[in-house]
Design a protein around this nucleic acid. Structure first.
Length: 633
RNA sequence: GCCAAUGUAGCUCAGUCGGUAGAGCAGCUGAUUCGUAAUCAGCAGGUCAGCGGUUCGAGUCCGCUCAUUGGCUCCA
């Protein structure tokens, strides 16, 4: 096994070695007192044997690296408190997660935030009682018997799913014992700073066919300061929520009249059009041809594409002259028909098509979320038709394109390789080939990715690019999907060098993902202070008094004549007031025009970020602004 | 769709035990002509999300519906 250590070294570990063994050998100064380790992002027991290659980070529960352990113990304390207050509650699972922990309970009545005070109070009591956490190891059968006797059916089910012959570990604190791999803090008294955050329904084992359990989300920190800083951080993040900023900056909104159907107001459209212009420029440079295909197409087409069978739950339907039609949830069938309009030679391939396509999807009402998840959005789609030999090169070209897009905006991203889902079509051999094709292409570029089993599209596996919002939630934006199915279903072909017909392979891809979602991410990322080149208003000219009004208008005209987006504020208000407003509107540059400037023939420049920059000639201001726009800084 | 919470003026929010609806900002009108994040005064603005119920009386209590928020599921 190849293990990457936290200091960057990669070492060979023997099968059966635990994180503790490895730390003892290679990180002697870190291993003392070690109970928990982080392996590929997951908390593991330091005693547990490692099964696969991965990255190992040691954690000790005495230092601040032990947040996972602290939170895991906190989750046991919460479960103990809930059991004391609601003895009939059945325990499900309660892991530590990023920023906190949760515990799932099966209860005879739903929890509400009104129960929080009582639960927190009971937790404090348990902390005060300062129980020692004892690790108990039992043979499988005895562990099952124990939880049967405790009347904890979910725990029994969990143990039954563990491999035969394995010893089961339990952790006991006072009267409370839980099935748990560990590790834990030494005693409940060490968990002092926690807060219950929210309640939610959550399906047992994440499957909506199962019973919905009551999940309590909470968080815990080693110090009071850290806990308070965390709460503060959430409050700050809420201020950059794109839904709030969209309304404040008059860019976009979603009204009750159309849940999931966003409105873009004039300033939002300017921003959006800038992104689309950039997209067109990039695709033209990269050898794509833009198309536009219809939003409504007939039933036969959707049956042929497979959407009728595999995507119906997400589609909207209509009848025209008594015939069935569907509103497109994806753009690919339009591209298929575009390809089919003529005969292609192998010399024509790859054929790269792109489309800003408006799609509609019937998302569950509870899933809607501002511009992040809507029911109608524009996908910046590209469809590439190619020979099998061209797969790797085209996939790598797409990865290059997506990376270029995200780097330009300063986004960091995570890539996932999503494999075959349950509801899918095509042969396993095609799926294996397609999945391997994607894997080889990305591995060769040395780009890190994780595998997301069973999350592919119904027609093929995909590489998904995930971006973060203000609260650290991730959203899938770009995607690269390799597809052997659609060309088959639509009977696509090209003429090879042998003069025979051959089946092309196809790539579906988005860069922004959806224009709407990308704008949401960009808004939260920049807190509404967009880069100059996409800013709805780039420069605002502010007159000091009535005497400067004509001059302000003249300057604004010179700017707009050069294609710079400019607004003028000549209201009879104090300059401080006008500046404050322009700042709140996050306008990148303000020009203050008073008698002094008029006399000297200069402009006083103020940048939204740096503040007063002093005076310069209008010509040199225009030059520097044009340079900044050109360079898309 | 499921679990929980929320819904009062354009926005942010107050409204006690059920007794005729309140603030700040924004808007409008007037005065002020001002030098880098808020000038002053006045005016206007509401079917308290919608529908139904309890009550002499409902923003307030109950039920249903709609929408939003945080999760689950799903996904660009």
């Amino acid at each position: 096994m190849r293990i990457q250590l936290e200091d960057g070294r990669a070492i060979d570990a023997q099968a059966g070695q635990s994180a503790l063994d490895i730390a003892k050998e290679h990180l002697p100064e870190r291993y003392s007192g070690m109970l928990a380790a982080e392996f590929d992002g997951h908390l593991i027991d330091a005693f547990a044997p490692l099964q696969a290659d991965g990255a190992l980070k040691t954690l000790t529960w005495e230092d601040d690296g032990g947040k996972w352990t602290l939170r895991h113990t906190a989750s046991h304390i919460m479960a103990q408190a809930v059991k004391r207050l609601f003895p009939q509650a059945k325990l499900a699972i309660g892991p530590a997660i990023d920023n906190g922990f949760y515990y799932d309970f099966d209860t005879d009545r739903p929890f509400s935030t009104e129960d929080f005070d009582a639960i927190e109070k009971e937790m404090k009591k348990i902390v005060k009682e300062n129980f020692r956490l004892e690790r108990i190891e039992l043979p499988r059968a005895e562990a099952i018997a124990f939880f049967q006797q405790q009347n904890e059916p979910y725990k029994v089910e969990l143990i039954e799913d563990l491999p035969e012959g394995e010893t089961i570990s339990l952790y006991k604190q006072g009267e409370f014992t839980d099935l748990c791999a560990g590790p834990h803090l030494g005693s409940t008294g060490k968990v002092k700073h926690f807060r219950l955050m929210s309640v939610a329904g959550a399906y047992w084992r994440g499957d909506e066919k199962n019973k919905m359990l009551q999940r309590i989300y909470a968080t815990a920190f080693a110090t009071k300061e850290e806990l308070e800083a965390y709460i503060e951080r959430i409050e700050e993040a809420k201020k950059r929520d794109h839904r709030k900023l969209g309304r404040q900056l008059d860019l976009f909104d979603i009204q009750d009249a159309g849940p999931g159907f966003p409105f873009f107001y004039p300033k939002g459209m300017v921003l959006r059009n800038q992104l689309e212009n950039f997209w067109r420029e990039q695709h033209a440079q990269r050898g794509y041809q833009e198309i536009k295909t219809p939003i409504i197409l007939n039933r036969d087409l959707w049956i042929q594409s497979g959407h009728w069978d595999h995507y119906q739950n997400n589609m909207y339907f209509t009848k025209i002259d008594d015939l069935d039609y569907a509103v497109k949830p994806m753009n690919c069938p339009g591209s298929m028909l575009t390809y089919k309009r003529r005969i292609y030679s192998y010399r024509d391939l790859p054929e790269r098509m792109c489309e800003l396509g408006l799609v509609h999807r019937h998302e569950l009402s509870g899933a809607l979320h501002g511009l992040m998840r809507v029911r109608c959005f524009t996908q910046d789609d590209s469809h590439i038709f190619m020979t099998p030999e061209q797969i790797k090169g085209e996939v790598q070209g797409l990865i290059d394109k997506l990376t270029y897009f995200y780097k330009l905006f300063g986004f960091s991203f995570r890539v996932e390789l999503s494999t075959r889902p349950e509801n899918s079509m095509g042969s396993q051999e095609d799926w294996d080939n397609a999945t391997e094709g994607l894997r080889l292409a990305i591995e060769e570029l040395g780009m890190p990715f994780v595998v997301n089993e069973g999350d592919g599209a119904f027609y093929g596996p995909k590489l998904d690019f995930h971006l973060e919002d203000a609260l650290g939630r991730t959203w899938q934006c770009g995607t690269i999907q390799l597809d052997f199915q659609m060309p088959e279903r639509f009977d696509l072909h090209y003429v090879g060098p042998d003069g025979e017909k051959h089946r092309p392979v196809m790539l579906h891809s988005t860069s922004f993902g959806s224009i709407e979602r990308f704008i949401a991410i960009l808004t939260e990322h920049t807190a509404g202070a967009f880069p100059l080149w996409v800013s709805p208003v780039q420069v605002k000219v502010l007159s000091l008094t009535e005497r400067n009004e004509a001059m302000a208008h003249a300057i604004a005209k010179s700017l707009s004549d050069r294609g710079i987006r400019v607004e003028t504020d000549v209201r009879n208000e104090k300059i401080g007031y006008k500046i404050r407003e322009a700042q709140l509107e996050k306008v990148p540059y303000m020009l203050v025009i008073g008698d002094k400037e008029a006399e000297a023939g200069v402009v006083a420049v103020r940048a939204r970020k740096e503040g007063d920059l002093g005076t310069m000639t209008l010509t040199s201001f225009i030059e520097s602004v044009e340079k900044e726009i050109r360079e898309r800084r």
